[in-house]
Amino acid sequence: MTQMADAVHPTSHAAVPHGDAHAHGHHPNLEHHFDSLTQQFDAGKLGMWLFLATEVLLFGGLFCAYAIFRRNHPEVFMYAHQFLDTTWGAINTVVLLVSSFTMAWAVTASQRGQRHLTSILLALTFLGGVGFMVIKAVEYSHKFHDGLMWGVHYDPAKHEHGHGHNGAHGAAATAAHGAADHAAPADHGTAGAAATAAPAASTHPEATTSVHAPETSGQPAATGAEAADLPPERAPLEPSQVALAPAGPAGLHTGGHDLHGPRPDNVHWFFGVYFTMTGLHGLHVLAGMAVIGWLFVRSVRGDFSADYFTPVDLGGLYWHLVDLIWIFLFPLLYLIH
């Protein structure tokens, strides 16, 4: 679109310069409706800041949702965040911080007209983005694998039973197995599966009683009672609406989550929040990488100079925002106390 516009509008100077053929005698990167490069730069900068404000507000909606859910149900967050891998999260934070640093350096370099350095630093920043996304992909695939997903796809059976159960078992059977396998009273797995057998336990007190281990069946009933906003005579939930997917093949996941305590209701909220926030952030990282890739190409081509570095500056601002959002996401999701 830009290209076409330039083709039919010889007088309008796009950021893609054909400034050599320029007739009016002012700077090749000065667009016709601005009086000076300073004015153009100021306008660009204000525009970018406004855009960043809209981005903050976009995420602001999610932070709001986070705050509401967390305030109402802190136990869900306390429990579920343990399934996130703080090490990977921390590494990712470092990766993004480093890439933010190289980006800031790239801006300075371009302001000084250091073309080569700018290109190298942009490339490094881009690689930082790649690294972040790769790590995120690894984390995501673990979560998918373990059924640590949102809403209807949340499946505790996949991560709470290291011993693997035949897929033909229903959830109640799974619960029974859990009780048999882990005799320890503190076993979270049994409690969890009991809750699975009794979806939204509040609506089905009778379902809960089908699990025999008293010290464990009490748990979901208690949490269920808290959430018992729902009338007892309500229609039963459809099996399909509840995470009743049979346990996966044997040996899918061998423990590793033994210290989580009893599982509260609606753990899927946390993962809903986790995936929406990190997913949307991931999309922004991708968009930022596209911008940096474009800046890299232009930088190699020699578009930027000490006079004209607006795109690098603005791209840098965007990348810092993406970084900043992660700086908020990391503690909010990974480091809950």
Binding site: L58, G61, F69, G151, W269, G272, T276
Partner: peptide, 26 residues
């Protein structure tokens, strides 16, 4: 932007079953 995120969540709810607005999922 708030409308943007609201509509995204609505789509996520309808297509992916994320459950923020769904009383059955709390």
């Amino acid at each position: 932007p708030v409308l943007g995120i609201t509509l995204l969540l609505l789509l996520a709810e309808r297509l992916l079953g994320i459950g923020f607005f769904d009383s059955e999922l709390g």
